[in-house]
Write a protein that binds this DNA or RNA. Structure first.
Lengths: 254, 254
DNA sequence: AAAATAGTGTCTGTTAGACATTATAAA
DNA sequence: TTTATAATGTCTAACAGACACTATTTT
């Protein structure tokens, strides 16, 4: 390959100083109310932040993330950096936006690719500090949004929150926050933890017996055909369900 | 700034060779049936492609696009490159995916940011060739998907099509393809041009008199309060409507 | 009169939404 | 026996979906 046959050459242009990724890991923590044994827990939507060890924004809270290598996709980078910085791996990451305002990163010209993941609390139980992170913590989202974070990470978390709220109502991502088997109350609580305005008085009935929607979840039975129940959160046992692979197609036109 | 106080330095790492953008401009062309004067046109969803002048993929059809400058966002880059390569400007562009597979671009390590736009045919009437483009043409999407295109542009168009099909059903982007005033048939045809499987026998009634949906569009009246009508496409005049700013919130849970 | 598109009537079964009521087991 | 959560009953108005039918203008 010589200069004449190849009109393009990176040397002649200013190129980016890096292609970082930032990962917004959401989880829902459950806290049992004190003094009451069988009751619904308080559920809180939290985001995983790290305390930076290095310049820039040393000592500030930030999203985990790091620089993409030439040999990987941005998706693979996000997986790798999450593992390296926090010890958490195997999450389902979804890319949702790109941040490219000039000057957003004091290290140079950086175009950042933002991902989000929704996980059960147990998936981030293995979190640990690292070379990059002096601390790794779950912070309630509303609190995180009021903190002074590194870079434009406050905006990124805010955008991610908008996105997962939309997705929570229009897809079955609620399953990412739930165990394989769950009760209607657990599902209802999870939706409310993400979308506080959500309210549906006839929730159980709509999701179980409405023709166009009942395919979303299915009841669970044991080998004898008996309905599986749980009384983990209630006096009266509640029926257990699981998500199917079906997601209804929504339309504003009918 | 010296090396000791700044642990990060782009010089020590391999950095990307560029941050290109690719723009998928969709339009719907209207063709009047021959011999019939007042009839609904045949509408075809088409995508704007350019014929490349330079290496790589010289002479191949490709999406318009180009390299981001240090002084702009990827969004601004997409606007600028679209103008430079095709003469088209002022479109509403939406970023929908990132393409970063190693080896996807023979010029080097390129992480590409893909945008789509939906526009009326008149908006791309000003298209013209340029230094980069030997030809600029509208190609029917199905045909474009069967062509041998430059880079991974076939995948990008395919992903963009999936995205706008979803958005067509769940938002009011149909308005991007339509004039300010339109008839129910025009709206119906536009939806069908994007989502061929769309069928709704009681379309007019649902969108005009269903309580939860009627805020999407509103009927148009002249200064005397008379309903505005059009007989552009029909013997019997059809009522004219316009979109409002309202989009219903969809939910799979009720 | 025929053609082409616009728009309404009417029917049945389903769903939304509100709220009262009953059920089950633990504390 | 009270408490906390689970689940059903009941009612009305709105809506979905199917299809027949009427309306308005040009050719």
């Amino acid at each position: 390959m010589n200069e004449q046959s190849i009109p393009y050459s990176p040397e002649q242009y200013r190129t980016p100083d890096g292609a970082p990724t930032d990962i917004v890991v959401f989880t829902i923590t459950s806290t049992q109310k004190a003094g009451i044994k069988k009751s619904l827990p308080i559920r809180s939507l939290e985001v995983m932040l790290i305390k930076r060890k290095k310049w820039p924004y040393e000592g500030k809270w930030a999203l985990p993330g790091g620089f993409t290598l030439e040999t990987e996709t941005v998706q693979q980078c996000a997986q790798r950096e999450l593992m390296e910085e926090t010890g958490v791996s195997g999450l389902h990451l979804e890319q949702f936006n790109v941040y490219s305002s000039p000057g957003r990163d004091p290290r140079g010209w950086m175009i950042s690719h933002a991902f989000f993941a929704l996980v059960q609390e147990t998936y981030v139980a293995s979190r640990r500090t690292s070379d990059e992170a002096a601390d790794v913590r779950l912070i309630p989202v509303e609190e995180a949004l009021s903190m002074e974070l590194a870079f434009d990470h406050r905006d990124i978390i805010s955008d991610a929150l908008d996105k997962i709220r939309l997705r929570m109502m229009t897809s079955t991502i609620a399953k990412e926050f739930l165990p394989e088997r769950f009760t209607m109350s657990e599902l209802y609580q999870v939706i409310q933890a993400v979308v506080p305005s959500f309210q549906e008085r006839n929730f159980i009935r709509k999701i179980t017996s409405t023709q166009s929607r009942k395919g979303i979840i299915e009841e669970m039975r044991d080998s004898k055909g008996q309905l599986l129940m749980s009384n983990q959160y209630s006096q009266r046992p509640a029926q257990l369900y699981r998500f199917t692979d079906y997601t209804p197609e929504l339309s504003i036109y009918g």
